[in-house]
Amino acid sequence: MPPVFDANLCTGCGTCEDTCPLDVIYMDEQNGRSFAKYPEECWHCGSCRQECPVEAIQIRFPLRVMVPAGVVPY
């Protein structure tokens, strides 16, 4: 789920791709914009958002983070 890119603001500069410590973000070869190729591998660290020069990135937490429920192992 996170990060979410605003396609209208994204300039395709590739900064976010280089700042992701988990190699989650790639550039779409068709439209030249960033996208989360491996969203389930996001650590929610916010590195991409901090570095984005045009503030095109928002963090949207996955449902299972927002609504934690169920049996905890211990």
Partner: peptide, 17 residues
């Protein structure tokens, strides 16, 4: 190395890399 209570393995305290 351990199950994450949310089922999201990379949603961990320290860096998942």
């Amino acid at each position: 190395l351990y199950q994450n209570p949310t089922g999201l393995s990379f949603n961990c305290w320290m860096c998942p890399a």
